[in-house]
Amino acid sequence: MPTWIDACATDDIEEEDLIRFDHDGRTFAIYRSPEDEYFCTDGLCTHEQVHLEDGLVIEHTIECPKHNGRFDYRSGEALRSPACVNLGTYPVKTEGGRVFIEV
């Protein structure tokens, strides 16, 4: 059975930005797209486990702040080396001005 976790308010995330969300010993990144949609990935880069929270978000990509690896946050796909392993992604829903992720 899916477990939906209340992660943040929709207003907590600026358009084309992300926030870090820690839950049960894990780190997630929650994004708000230019189309006002929300997405969730693992919060650590797959290259050297660097937190993505300080990364640069442009359109639908997140760039790791350490070595500039890039990912498509909608699919988790690694787009530029040194990142070559995709990020895990998680379902997201919004209700009543809140963002929920399924873990």
Rank of each mutant, 00 (worst) to 15 (best):
R26L: 08
E14C: 07
R32M: 14
E95P: 02
Y90E: 04
T10L: 15
I19E: 10
K93W: 01
T89R: 15
L18P: 04
Y73P: 12
R98L: 03
H23R: 06
E48Y: 10
L52H: 10
G55M: 10
I101C: 08
T27P: 03
E59M: 13
H23W: 14
A9Y: 06
G88K: 15
T10F: 09
E15F: 07
E15D: 08
Y31N: 08
L79S: 06
T46G: 04
E59R: 09
M1Y: 00
P65G: 03
Y38M: 05
F21R: 02
G88R: 15
D72Q: 13
D42F: 03
C84V: 14
A78C: 11
E16M: 11
H60Y: 15
D54F: 15
H67W: 09
K93C: 01
D11S: 12
G55D: 12
F21Q: 04
A29W: 04
P34R: 10
R20E: 14
F21G: 07
N86A: 15
A7D: 08
F100W: 10
Y73H: 13
E15P: 08
L44P: 04
T10I: 15
F100E: 05
E59A: 12
F28Q: 05
W4H: 09
I101V: 07
R98N: 02
T41K: 10
C45P: 07
D22R: 06
E77R: 12
G96C: 01
S81K: 03
P34F: 12
T89L: 06
H47I: 04
E15T: 11
E48F: 09
G25T: 01
T3A: 00
S81R: 02
S75E: 14
P2N: 06
E16W: 05
P2F: 07
A29V: 03
A78N: 09
T41R: 10
S81L: 13
E59F: 13
Y90V: 01
P91F: 06
G97W: 01
A29E: 09
D6C: 13
D36M: 13
R32G: 14
E95K: 08
T61F: 03
D24T: 02
P2C: 00
Y90I: 02
R80T: 05
E95M: 08
I13W: 08
G55L: 11
T61Y: 05
G96E: 01
D36R: 13
G25K: 00
D12W: 09
D24K: 04
H23A: 08
H47D: 06
E35Y: 03
E59L: 14
S33H: 10
L79I: 02
D6W: 00
